[in-house]
Write a protein that binds this DNA or RNA. Structure first.
Lengths: 208, 208
DNA sequence: GAAAAAGATTGAACGAGTTCATTTTTTAAG
DNA sequence: CTTAAAAAATGAACTCGTTCAATCTTTTTC
């Protein structure tokens, strides 16, 4: 039976990820010890290290799941956005933000972002960066769609504009994660306040 | 002599910072061991920990120096900027970028940014965040000055616009630090390519 | 100037992530 | 079914950041 090993491997990969995510959420990333994660996943410490390069990689794997789901949901919004620049942006971005705390706590996000910055050459950090690029591409795509449908002025460089929006929403998300007390509604309000005037600038439909 | 202790303390603080910076640059942040830093600074490990809370704090102290100098140089530019939006932005931002690798390597920046994200409640991380806010305020101030001098359209919200530029230049700097191979000229070119069209949008002087 | 109090220094011990030589389990070959 | 080879699992040992009780130095008090 060639499938036995493969099945066991997949099972262990999943068990480790689930145990880690549970403990990260329960006690925080730093307090969750590798030994405990291994025990909960019913493997030895050494085995855990056969499946993930290091502690951070386990976390980044969870982030990758999160972002993948967000990207998928975003595709639907981009395919058929509200035909109003500010509203379209708001819809997509609020979807990102609302999903962001589904699997991950703010502390987990902070750690994941920190890892992806500090060790950008790790395979899973590369993956994080790549997912980030996909999110950015999605925002660009939204602006592109809005331009094609005639609600964004034709002279606008959609690539530049999309990157600007994305860098801004990403940076604001970082600030959000840094302040435990900030509610997600405040993040949304702040980002919206920044994007609305820009949206007005590039919109063909001028509000009187 | 009441000054003996104070003098010795100042001297040790400096020696530790210098030793650490040297070793961080030479061998990278992770490879530079606290024991080696202490030995180079001619203090014991325990003493080092009386002067800095942890390894990261030593690094953030260097960053604070760097940013303080950059802010000061920026003040002069903001006081008397080129009367052209794109050029003014370019001048200020290139000054930031050119100074950025004076004391710190890319790897040191990455670590510092990672720390300030991951442990935002540390005193020195707060300091980092505060310096960031000052940089942002400086960019806002530049846009404000340009508006006062009539080169930025009066309808523009300078706060929003400045934050947008800052978040963008900051994010782009992060990306720059993540890619060891990227030269600073490429960073400048990319950021300029993003800011130029926006500058044109908000400028009173339209280019034909 | 001696004794007491306050401040500073020290390095051995501790904890947690990571490694790797050894052992166990699974697969493939005859 | 037996045996050899490959793959996976194991946990004790190692590393390095960090702590803290004991010691030493400086300052203050009388």
């Amino acid at each position: 039976m060639a499938g036995l090993r493969a099945k066991q491997k997949a099972d262990k990969t999943r068990r480790i990820l689930e145990s880690a995510t549970t403990l990260f959420r329960e006690q925080g990333y730093d307090s969750a010890r590798i030994e405990d994660i291994a025990e909960m996943a019913e493997v030895s410490v050494g085995t855990l290290y056969n499946y993930y390069q290091n502690k951070g990689d386990i976390l980044v794997a969870t982030v990758a799941m999160e972002v993948t789901e967000v990207l998928e949901a975003g595709t639907r919004i981009v395919a058929n956005p509200p035909l109003n620049v500010a509203e379209a942006l708001r819809t997509l971005i609020e979807q990102y933000y609302d999903h962001s705390l589904f699997y991950l706590s703010k502390e987990m996000w902070r750690t994941a972002m920190a890892i992806s910055i500090q060790q950008p050459e790790t395979p899973l950090s590369r993956r994080y960066t790549e997912l980030d690029a996909q999110l950015c591409a999605q925002v660009v795509q939204l602006v592109q769609t809005l331009q094609t449908r005639g609600v964004v002025h034709a002279s606008i460089d959609v690539q530049v504009m999309g990157e600007l929006f994305f860098n801004n929403l990403n940076m604001m998300f970082m600030e959000f994660c840094k302040v435990d007390a900030m509610p997600i509604e405040e993040l949304k309000a702040r980002v919206n306040a920044q994007h609305e005037p820009i949206a007005a600038l590039i919109s063909t439909v001028k509000i009187v």
